[in-house]
Design a protein around this nucleic acid. Structure first.
Lengths: 409, 409
DNA sequence: TCACTTTGTACCGCTGTGATACAAAACAGG
DNA sequence: CCTGTTTTGTATCACAGCGGTACAAAGTGA
């Protein structure tokens, strides 16, 4: 029963954390990896060798170009560009986008899909997965997971979409189940069998992506607030993990009161963030009629960027900034994040007048003076897509061997 | 260099988790411990033996009184009643209470202190710690830590009280530092030197205590909301850990808007939870003048319990319940807890009309229909005190050997 | 060229845990 | 009362993973 040992005998337990560090760019060298893992150089070296043997990372042994530091130069650790990928996709009211995403959040191949409004999720997801399958075929890459971002609250752990109204889907659709069916049907499989399929809310996933690869890097408590096409969503990443609440429904921030004299909201309240700080509200406050030529977010962005000198537009922007600031301050008091990222129209509002928004947040949050929270724009393109990929990567980041070689040899 | 091994050679890594399970009553027997830890019986047995050798738990080998189950009966695991204690204390505007608390959250000895209003924290904490020192002397117990609950937001990790106005302390007092000074001065030390001292917000600590030993047991996302003497506080326990935000300032829930036409609040808003659902607001709405004979919370409780038949009192209670429900619903939408516990006046309001409060929360939270959140009263006496003890226990629960025998032999 | 600094690797040994086999303590049924 | 069954507790072995140490490698600076 003596077992031939082809792998290194060391550094298996730290494999996942090490891969996560390289994946998020926090371990550029083995020396840094050693420090971050809190292990000895011997262990870190073995871990890196094992990850290289698994085809996940590369060790670039060429001397670095004179870093100026003393001592023996480190070899560079980097994600293997020819390593495995995951299938990631995002669906929204204007269509979908499918992509293959590599470690490090790099989009390897992508294809947008056309507008689809079909109340049958299986139909829509069939097209999405077919597009992904074509990308896999074209590139010949190994796929180890699949992730999907949807514009709806998603109940955990079943993966049920609770309010996918922007997709014209019925409430309560078991999206994860449907997605898995389509992935199976198209024969997408990994090195050791069928791949796991995951579904998440698009803003949650955008937050996850920003935390790992974008403007949220290093934040211990990252709050992300963004508008989609209609309404407002939020997400919180705590210590690197999405805070989705006990059943995936946390951070439904759209019904914070930000304007007591405001419009009635379908939730039964009045002046909710959802109806007071979204693209439609902006157009309305600026005295513009929404036109049919562009999507609402695009119209709002155009107006904000090109007509900011117009007093009506400026006044509407100020109004929305004040309301947004009030909502953010309420969230700061409850969640105490150390960074806030804004997306969609909220990002545009921030960039229109950063100081106004920051001062409102500081004034209305209780501890504004004792170290105000940085409010910054999102930085990643397709962050929901990259976040969907992160969901799919998670099993690999938790235990690479379980995904790539479950039998242990 | 062969080392004489006095301790068992197995089960040291799982020592902390095992102790935490016995401490919180989740491991009544070794068989359950085995399952909870996810280890083999051999390991669990070794861990239990080691904890017994350390004087932390006891294994009661007497046969249990016919549990009715098949198979060999389990030995009972229980906290050692003669084990170490921690010094726990709570200060509030009417005085303080010091106690020795054993594992399992059992109060071994306690002494209330008289009313103190002194703007010098060192003076107050001196009395508190002196009371604790007397308890230690009287009982002769071994002390392994000290914890303090204060009615103020506490900035982490420094342990600075940001708004201890109910104690008439200046904002920004380094309470943890002062507390540590007094503990050192009174010569309180553990088996391996000076003990660590910890400070936390009283409602946060109440939540921690309820989660481990009270009505919050088993909740994955526990939200606690309570009134103290004035104002409203909240706390969240996620996966057994306090969610204090990035700097200890999370869950400042007192400034959620619950009554747009309400009173102005010092925060700049209007109709905040803080001024709309506290004891003073209740007396006011019921048309009563606060008297000097009792504390405000006591007056409110008396009124609610004895005069609930009075239409004015009933109307005031309904009004406050509706406002509280609105605030809770907002928190449910942001945090998605799986249980809510109420303390202080909020608990009394809940008990006055549970159905009214629960239906308001369900109606105004977005996912009320898809499984409404249970809203329950706090169950522990002195829960802030027990929570302060939990702070002090934490190092032991994380790594018993580091606290009791740091040199390893 | 010779220190000096930092990084990478080979080797030894130990710790904590799983696996396994067996003993112990109850019940069920004859 | 004896025997088989079920569950719990214990002894023993083997080994994976990691720390510690020593040493080699690759640069900088005088």
């Amino acid at each position: 029963m003596t077992q031939i040992r082809t792998r290194l005998e060391r550094g298996r337990g730290a494999l996942g954390p090490a891969l996560a560090l390289v994946h998020t760019g926090r371990a550029p060298t083995r020396a840094v990896l050693t420090a971050e893992l809190g292990v000895t150089r011997a262990t870190a070296g073995a871990v890196a060798a094992e990850l290289e043997a698994l085809g996940l990372i590369r060790v670039d042994t060429r001397p670095t170009v004179a870093a100026g530091a003393q001592g023996r130069p480190s070899h560079r650790l980097e994600v293997d560009p020819d390593g495995p990928v995951v299938l990631a996709a995002q669906v929204h009211s204007d269509g979908f986008r499918a992509a293959l995403v590599g470690l490090g959040g790099r989009i390897v191949a992508t294809d947008p899909g056309c507008v689809i409004v079909d109340p049958d999720p299986a139909q829509v997801l069939g097209e999405v997965v077919e597009t992904g399958a074509r990308l896999l075929e074209r590139t010949g890459r190994v796929c180890v997971g699949a992730g999907l971002a949807v514009p709806s609250a998603v109940a955990e752990p079943e993966g049920v979409a609770l309010n996918p109204m922007h997709l014209a889907w019925p409430a309560g659709v078991p999206v994860r189940e449907r997605f898995t069916e389509q992935v199976r049907r198209h024969g997408i499989a990994g090195p050791v069998g069928p791949v796991d399929c995951w579904v998440g809310n698009d803003i949650n996933l955008a937050a996850l992506a920003e935390h790992r690869h974008g403007g949220g890097r290093g934040a211990a408590h990252l709050l992300v607030v963004a508008t989609g096409h209609r309404g407002v969503g939020g997400a919180l990443v705590v210590d690197g993990r999405l805070h989705t609440g006990s059943s995936g429904l946390a951070l439904e921030v759209g019904h914070l009161t930000v304007n007591p004299q405001g419009r009635a909201c379908h939730c039964g309240g009045r002046g909710c963030l959802d109806v007071e700080v979204d693209p439609l509200a902006f157009l309305r406050e600026a005295g513009r009629e929404p036109g049919p030529e562009l999507s609402l977010p695009a119209q709002a962005r155009e107006l904000l960027r090109r007509k900011y000198a117009d007093p009506d537009v400026r006044r509407a922007a100020d109004l929305l900034i004040d309301r947004l600031g009030l909502g953010l301050a309420g969230l700061v008091n409850v969640l105490n994040p150390d960074r806030i990222l804004l997306g969609g129209l909220h990002r545009d509002l921030l960039e229109a007048d950063p100081e106004r928004l920051r001062s409102v947040v500081a004034d209305r949050s209780l501890w504004g003076r004792s170290g105000s929270v940085p409010v910054l724009p999102c930085t990643l393109d397709f962050n929901s897509l990259v976040g969907a990929a992160e969901l799919a990567w998670q099993p690999l980041l938790d235990d690479p061997l379980a995904v790539l070689a479950p039998q242990g040899g």
